[in-house]
Computed example of a mutant assay.
Amino acid sequence: MQFYRFGLLILSAIVGSVVLTGCDVVAEQATSSAPQATPVGVVTLKSQALTLKKELPGRVNAFQIAEIRPQVSGIVQSRLFVEGKQVEQGQALYQINPAVFEAELAASEAAVARAEASIASSKAKAARFSELLKIKAVSQQDFDEADAAYKQARAELLTAKAQLQSAKINLDYSHVSSPISGQISKSSVTVGALVSANQATALATVTQLDPIYIDLTQSSNELTQRKKALASGLLTVDPATQTDVELIMEDGSIYPHKGTLQFSEVTVNPSTGSVILRAEFPNPEKLLLPGMYARASIVEGVKADAILVPQRGVSRNSKGEPTALVVSAKSIVESRVLKIDRSVGANWLVIDGLKAGDRLIVEGLQKIRSGAPVTATEVDSSALSSTNKAQ
């Protein structure tokens, strides 16, 4: 009997141990099935004033171009410049044989002297006849003829002076000079060549390279959108920087001098749907030459409440839409579909989908999904930007 009781005690102890062990297993399984908060790095977004710029393609054009042509005919006596060198406004470039023009000038001076002598005689005669007419010593007809002769002499003097002026101009034109300052091209004629007044072929070309123009091309749609944004207040104008232009050269380097936007055309090219914007740049080193391709960055305006988002925090969904993951107030991951305007350095300019104060997840994205609990740690945004640039 005692043995039977002892057996029951042992059996009760074994059953109790099994039951307690089963409870511990169930508790451990319940604990392991509860979602764990995943640590992630976030950036708290802030709005800021941002100057928006647009990069446009363009071509370099000379500030001024002058084609040198003779205005009188004759033989080229000498060339007075070095090809390819800088010439100044008014500098003599060619000398056309002046002998014929000097002779014409001398003849014109003689004609003026003869007319002046004639006018002195006719003037005195007209004055005498005027006094004689008062006492009826001459007839009215005699006076009228004397007065007409005086007036004719005055007209002949004016004609002679005009011919003299023309002769001086032709003599001056025998010295072919530069109308502008700039760099001169090679000469198309040599000494001894016969040239004609206003001939079709230029003797040389002078090009002013400092300052210099950049003609930029912008689509009419972009120009219209910018005007609408300025009119609606989405963009504002900063007078201090609105006309600033930055030039990117063919090799990708930044041109050392800032340019100024001059004007935009008022007509749209029907074949390209674009308008021309002209910018003026200093060119003291002559780095820019007409015909070169260049890209320029112009100021569109200032966006007062811009939201810049690190590019590493933005991905694409199956539809190709840009998306981002943010941490809610309850530390739960939320997915947002974004509307992006453009890239700004290592960031995206977001115009819809995110706002100031949102905590954007930029680290640990591979370990989480929408709806998951997370533990957010703030990431240094400046260090993040430098990392993006290094990448």
Rank of each mutant, 00 (worst) to 15 (best):
S331P: 07
A110I: 11
V25D: 04
Y173F: 12
T375G: 00
Q311R: 13
A117L: 13
Q311C: 14
I10H: 14
S121Q: 04
P322N: 08
K286T: 01
Q64R: 14
G74V: 15
K258R: 07
S166R: 11
P211H: 10
L209V: 00
K186G: 12
Y173T: 06
I351M: 06
I119W: 07
Y4H: 15
A204K: 05
A137R: 05
V191C: 11
A115N: 00
T217D: 01
G259H: 00
Q391S: 08
K258Y: 02
E102L: 11
E104H: 12
V309L: 03
P39L: 14
A304Q: 12
T159V: 15
P211M: 03
N170T: 09
S177L: 02
V138I: 00
Q91F: 07
R5D: 03
D147R: 09
S386E: 12
L157N: 09
G252D: 00
S130V: 01
I10P: 08
S315E: 11
E265W: 11
A149G: 05
D238Y: 02
K389A: 08
V138N: 01
K136T: 02
Q366M: 14
P270T: 05
V302Q: 10
S382Q: 06
E363H: 15
Q89R: 10
V333P: 09
S385K: 02
Q86K: 13
K134L: 09
L158E: 10
P310T: 03
A294D: 03
V25K: 15
V362A: 08
E334T: 04
L308Y: 05
T207Q: 13
Y255R: 00
S47G: 08
L384D: 04
I332W: 08
E246A: 04
V344T: 09
L209M: 04
V87C: 06
I10T: 07
V19A: 15
L216F: 04
S73F: 04
A329L: 13
A231F: 01
V362R: 12
G90C: 03
A37W: 01
D244R: 05
L234F: 02
I340F: 02
A167D: 04
K367I: 01
L9C: 13
F281I: 07
R316D: 13
L20A: 15
K168V: 02
Q48N: 09
G84T: 03
S253G: 09
G252F: 02
A146V: 06
A106Q: 15
P239F: 04
L9S: 07
V314M: 08
G364F: 06
A13S: 11
K228M: 00
L164P: 05
Q183W: 14
L230T: 03
V100D: 09
M292N: 06
G345R: 12
F81T: 11
T205S: 10
S130A: 13
L308K: 06
K339T: 11
L50H: 13
L132W: 09
I351A: 01
C23Q: 13
V43I: 09
Q152L: 10
V191E: 12
S318F: 12
T44S: 10
S188K: 05
V42R: 14
R154Q: 12
N347A: 07
I65Y: 08
E378H: 03
G182P: 02
I307Q: 01
V302M: 14
R369Q: 15
T207D: 11
G353E: 02
V138Q: 00
T31M: 05
I135H: 10
V138L: 00
L52C: 05
E156W: 02
I212Y: 01
